[in-house]
Design a binder for these strands. Structure first.
Length: 576
RNA sequence: GCGCCCGUAGCUCAGCGGAUAGAGCAGGGGACUUCUAAUCCCAAGGCCGCAGGUUCGAAUCCUGCCGGGCGCACCA
């Protein structure tokens, strides 16, 4: 059952007070304050319109606040701020309410909403790199959060499994057969090496380039032997991706992978409809969509090219076909694309084209959830085509290895499979948290030391806070964490309840901007607040009823941290 | 040339209309017979790129500069 946050209840109270005074234009903004539990802002803005003194209005609002158990004290401060102190009893009641709900009182705002989210998007026969990592991790977190809020989420892994590069790849493989590798990782390395060699041959050997081009025609024409070779390559790569996703603990499966090739049959129809509706027109032999404000360096309009001069289809056509299918067949109420920010113009053109074509109704938002480019140590973007990237598989291995060293040092009793599992949870958690914790639009420099750090504002800090709580609760030996609302709260306890109460509102903010880093910030703050409580307020040694209340605080904090971490895709083990 | 993103502590980043701008890391000083020190406390560290504007109030919104990154016709 949904538990309204204290902030929203206060907002209602202040709004009611303002309404009773006839201040209809006054929209209070209630937020946490360093001067009180909460402050209500907006009086100063309203004062001017009403031609009244701000402090007078604030005083009137304070006087008109509905009588109830919530507010213990309200006073005017500064030029016209309203400071609000809540009653301990109300805070404890809120704690009990959240604790009494299996979902911690979080509502289901996404119920009935279908989101189709496109993320990860690795390329067949290429190693995944840190850019794919970002898309995968951010996308996975958004999926989990939307689903937690009751939404229906359709995951789409738009794999790069089609295109002219497969001609050279297949041709090269046929000409230079190699024995199949034993493991998936080794297979992937073989394929990636094959890709680089094929590329080199294509660029330097005109005869090979010609054979490769003919192979593309054979592939597109459905030649059985060529198709079989293509399927083998796709299958090998897919096994590698699945292995990575399993190690990451990401909820992407083969069923979510709908590659570019899946839309081949629809491309001609897409082009035809665009032409029929006058959205696209032939220019210089290519079927193009033009935009008033998109021009190149020469001042000439830059089109979205749906069909190339040679009759082939580019990725614009594929994206349009996929979009149309997601709205028409999957009944998407919202489309998300977790893709590198460099694709911004492309998505703008695709969305605009789809709107014009009528495939994307006004009520269906399409959002490019852009993330910053991952830069190398030299400040340059990581190259994907040169093959000069950090292998994702190696990064994961290193993260787990480092975590294992730290875990083993701190917890010498751990060994074998248990140690490995703990190391995996910590190491993968470190990578995910590092990627999720900063705002996604910003570019960042790839730095394994920072990404894999295990001190400070990191995933392990949150995991550690969680284990301390679990330790207390297990030592409490099943004692009842029942809330006695009649006690007086310590400052550290009040701060903790106030932070805990912000969980649901934080999730709302995350969805509003598709910004998982806000959840990271919230959880880190919560863990810090808990640690302050932990330092100052003994739990097990306290007397009843304080002991029970503190156990309740521990329980709700632990549940909130665990839930929050899970929504980020990070495990919250019982012990480190 | 046009467009998008970004300039906040030495470094990496939060904060995106509210009161005195916050964390982490690095560096300095402290705290483990205690519910796990993967932690905590203290001190130090800032023309919030620059200049105008809007506002009672701007790191936050608008405009213009400066600096950096990225993108802009048949690769994805």
């Amino acid at each position: 059952m949904t538990v309204p946050s204290l902030a929203s209840s206060l907002s209602d109270s202040v709004t009611d007070a303002a309404a009773s005074l006839g201040l209809a234009d006054f929209v209070p903004q209630v937020r946490r304050s360093e001067h009180a539990d909460f402050q209500a802002d907006g009086v100063l803005a309203a004062a001017r319109a009403l031609r009244r003194r701000p402090r007078d209005i604030a005083s009137a609002v304070v006087a008109a606040l509905p009588a109830g158990d919530l507010v213990a004290a309200a006073r005017v401060a500064g030029p016209g701020f309203v400071n609000l102190e809540l009653a301990d009893r109300a805070l404890l009641a809120q704690l009990a309410d959240r604790l009494g709900d299996s979902r911690l009182g979080v509502g289901t705002a996404e119920a009935g909403v279908t989101t189709v989210i496109d993320y990860s998007q690795p390329n067949i026969a290429k190693e995944m790199h840190v850019g794919h990592l970002r898309s995968t991790i951010i996308g996975d977190a958004l999926v989990r959060i939307l689903e937690h809020l009751g939404g229906t989420v359709v995951r789409r892994n738009h794999i790069g499994d089609w295109g002219t590069q497969f001609g050279m790849l297949i041709q090269y493989q046929l000409e230079q057969p190699e024995p199949p590798a034993v493991t998936d990782t080794a297979t992937m390395r073989r394929l990636a090496a094959l890709y680089r060699q094929a590329r080199a041959a294509f660029d330097t050997d005109p005869a090979f380039a010609e054979r490769a081009r003919r192979r593309v025609v054979a592939l597109q024409g459905g030649d059985p032997a060529t198709l079989a070779a293509w399927r083998d390559i796709v299958a090998e790569s897919t096994r590698y991706f699945t292995d990575i996703y399993d190690r990451l603990g990401v909820r992407l499966t083969g069923a979510d992978a709908v590659g570019e090739s899946a839309y081949n049959a629809a491309l001609a129809g897409v082009a035809g409809e665009l032409a029929d509706r006058g959205v696209a027109a032939v220019s210089d032999g290519a079927l193009c969509v033009f935009f008033d404000d998109v021009r190149g360096p020469d001042g000439e309009p830059t089109p979205l090219i749906v069909r190339k001069r040679d009759g082939g289809f580019g990725y614009a056509a594929t994206d349009l076909a996929a979009l149309r299918q997601r709205v028409a067949d999957l009944h998407a109420d919202r489309l998300l694309y977790v893709v590198d920010a460099r694709q911004a113009l492309h998505f703008r053109m695709v969305f605009d084209t789809a709107r014009r074509a009528g495939w994307l109704p006004p009520a269906v938002p399409a959002v490019h959830v852009a993330f910053g480019t991952v830069l190398g140590p030299d400040g340059r973007p990581f190259k994907t085509r040169a093959g000069d990237t950090v292998r994702l598989a190696d990064l994961l291995t290193e993260a787990v290895d480092r975590a294992r060293d730290v875990v083993a040092a701190k917890n010498p009793g751990l060994a074998g499979a248990a140690l490995h599992e703990r190391a995996r949870q910590v190491g993968i958690g470190a990578i995910k948290y590092a990627d999720l914790a900063t705002s996604r639009t910003r570019d960042y420099t790839y730095d394994p030391d920072r990404m894999l750090a295990l001190t400070g504002n990191t995933g392990v800090y949150l995991q550690y806070a969680h284990t301390r709580i679990r330790s207390i609760l297990s030592r409490a030996d099943g004692a009842d964490a029942s809330v006695d609302p009649g006690t007086t709260l310590e400052p550290a306890e009040r701060a903790l309840i106030l932070d805990l109460d912000g969980f649901a509102d934080t999730l709302t903010e995350v969805v509003a901007g598709y910004e998982p880093h806000r959840l990271c910030g919230y959880l880190y703050r919560l863990a810090q607040t808990f640690t302050a409580f932990y330092e100052r307020c003994p739990v097990l040694r306290a007397d009843e009823p304080v002991r029970g209340n503190r156990l309740a605080l521990c329980r709700l904090t632990g549940d909130t941290l665990r839930t929050g971490l899970e929504l980020l895709g990070i495990d919250a083990p019982e012990q480190l």
